[in-house]
Amino acid sequence: MNTVTITMVKQPQLFLEADLITPDQFAGKSIEAIGAIEISEGKIKYPLASFAKIEGVSGATAAETKIVLNGDLTRVKRIGQQMTAGEIIINSNVDMYTGGWMKGGKITVNGNADSFTGIAMAGGELTINGNCQNHVGSAYRGDWRGMTGGVLRVTGNVGNDIGTFMRGGTIIVGGDAFIHVHTHGEGGTIIVKGNIQARVGGQSVKGDIFVNGKIDFMMPGYKYVEDVEKDVDGVKAVYAHYVGDLGERHPEAKGQKVFTNLYLKK
């Protein structure tokens, strides 16, 4: 695997939109051609080279290309958007839409990420070694198809709207979440190892939610069933099993109604 290293040398006055920083775009390009890739600040387009120093060699295909981003990328949006293969390592905080709509490959952020991280993700691995803001692994506005696949892991805390309209894949949050986890969910798994303030699984149709900490305000639509032992992210523990949301429509399979399962650690 070949590596391209990008080091930010200048900061924009506003914010940069860098949706073309993906292995798919870099693959098979020379350093000069990568430097000419467009990034925009508001309505002006700049070549990537005017903000960053670019070194290394790109691979022939996306899968053989690894991008390492250094320097301060706090004001850079949309890194790794729609990537299908390869790897991105970001050694900084990043702004919005990191790994949005990604289909494959791997992104690791060694820092915090802003909102809309992994929005409508379809595959691949996205790891944030830090905190995230809102709408992690959520759907784009008005879309009923949220995250459909892949693994999204946040080691720190997250805000609201985690996995809204989720249909598949896994979201693992190491810390706490604020409100609206798995809202409108139609599948997928969310694991929150910390506490959640409220609104877990509201309007959720099906899927699995695991909470290791406390939920301050339970949704009224969740009904206790029984205690079960579950293996969650490699750790076995006893969970109280609830089903819901009783206030939402639910499909039937084999003559039985299918509910969302909420597992609350005892």
């Binding site: 409220a198 609104r199 509201g202 309007q203 949704m219 009224p220 639509g221 009783l246 206030g247 939402e248």
Partner: peptide, 14 residues
């Protein structure tokens, strides 16, 4: 939000 959920539970027969 929770209160709406309770209203909807009643409408869904719960």
């Amino acid at each position: 939000y929770e209160l709406f959920d309770a209203f909807r539970m009643v409408m869904h027969g719960y």
